[in-house]
Nucleic acid binder design. Structure first.
Lengths: 231, 231
DNA sequence: TGGCACATGTAACAAGTTACATGATTTA
DNA sequence: TAAATCATGTAACTTGTTACATGTGCCA
């Protein structure tokens, strides 16, 4: 559980109520890390019981009393230890959608396209939302936190690219759905796709295809200015 | 839980023992989806109890008896329903390492670099392993399964790029670690980095930087042939 | 007058990890 | 002779989800 550590990190900058923490998760790190009430409040309670945070109840008229939590020395120590612990585990691509792709050969072309289009629309929507969050909070976060926002956008764009390419292949009938079928052509097509993504000079056809697929590169993210220079 | 569905999908192609399923997870989809014994065997047992799979015990001398499972009509129906269900949930970046980056402003430059270098080495190692798996199994999987392999490589490469860039910024002192500090310079630097990643013509300096950072673009993955054409 | 913002929770369940347990055969 | 492979599991625990519960004040 890193939720405990995430909350300790927030409380390290000053006292907060559960509701305020909840709002932070909902507004600022929405698509990167969400928490349910059913996890948040019991976790705070347990952290209090364990002496990681202290509690001050602020009486309110009309609505439930505010529970203002502050980090304790023990909590600060726990956080300091956690943040320095090396990360040795690789995060897997353990996503239900990817698992469905794994078994796509069991579906018809129409069913596959339905899945792919729905997934593309989902990601396009999320991308807009992430950009909105970035625009709203960009000036209030640390440079590292900004790097996470950029990474999120980059990941979603890469996913959109992958989806758009699969849609294209399926629509053109270049992926055969017979189980276990292996076509030389498919490998060629797949290799060339990934070859172009990061190539120095993507071909004109590839750029046209990107437009057609509605993948917007270069993105609004970096407001391409075309001067081609770096720091 | 999609483990149940993953196993139904495998058993749909023929009977397997728990051990064989375990080997499949370990060898073929290692870095994409791993399972522990403590989850695999009890899940199979529960699926059998629920009538999704049937069991035939094959007696063995010397070692534990083999439990050969086959999919039932009920299981096939369940799988057919699951694979057609639309995916409406966006997968979050809920990774402990990313959370640590979120709080990097609480660490010293040296501690940050230690984290970043360790993470880069981890990902470089995983990339080699994924490539090894791909080379071994490429000809035995469906085109869709191959697309997942490519996606995995692409994701790890993007992560490596992100890490290399952060290392560079921190080493050059372009990210200040004072909490909450906001520098115009940092935003410029960050924007330009992401501008170049997908640009039509990355600058020579950027390409040199990629070499220095040991991010191999174009990668061995697509064995760039330089003819610049598409199908 | 219906819903949203505020503010906190519980209970039941599902999913997943870790450590432990057994025991023969094969390979280094 | 140590350890890896084959082959199965249990028990305790952690983490996370979903649905439900309570109640005021404010805005359209």
């Amino acid at each position: 559980m890193s939720l405990r550590e995430a909350m300790l990190g927030l409380l390290d900058d000053g006292p907060m109520t559960g509701y305020e923490i909840k709002q932070f998760f909902r507004n600022v790190i929405q698509h990167f890390w969400s928490v349910s009430d059913g996890q948040l409040y019991p976790t705070l309670k347990k952290m209090h019981k364990d002496g990681l945070i202290s509690l001050e109840v602020v009486e309110q008229k009309g609505t439930a009393n505010k529970h203002v939590y502050s980090i304790t020395d023990k909590g600060r120590e726990k956080f300091a230890h956690w943040i320095r612990e090396p990360v040795i585990k690789f995060e897997e691509l353990k996503e239900p959608f990817v698992l469905k792709v794994f078994f796509f050969s069991k579906l018809s072309r129409e069913e596959i396209l339905e899945h792919l289009h729905a997934q593309r629309e989902l990601h396009a929507r999320i991308l807009e939302e992430i950009r909105g969050v970035r625009d709203t909070y960009e000036e209030n976060v640390s440079p590292y936190q900004r790097m996470i926002g950029y990474a999120g956008i980059l990941y979603v764009e890469v996913r959109l690219l992958w989806l758009a390419r699969m849609i294209d292949l399926v629509e053109q009938g270049q992926i055969e759905t017979q189980p276990g079928l292996y076509t030389e052509q498919m490998i060629e097509v797949g290799k060339r796709f990934f070859e172009e993504v990061f190539s120095e000079k993507p071909s004109k056809e590839f750029r046209n295809w990107l437009d057609k697929a509605k993948v917007h590169l270069p993105f609004p993210l970096w407001n391409a200015r075309g001067d081609g220079r770096r720091e």
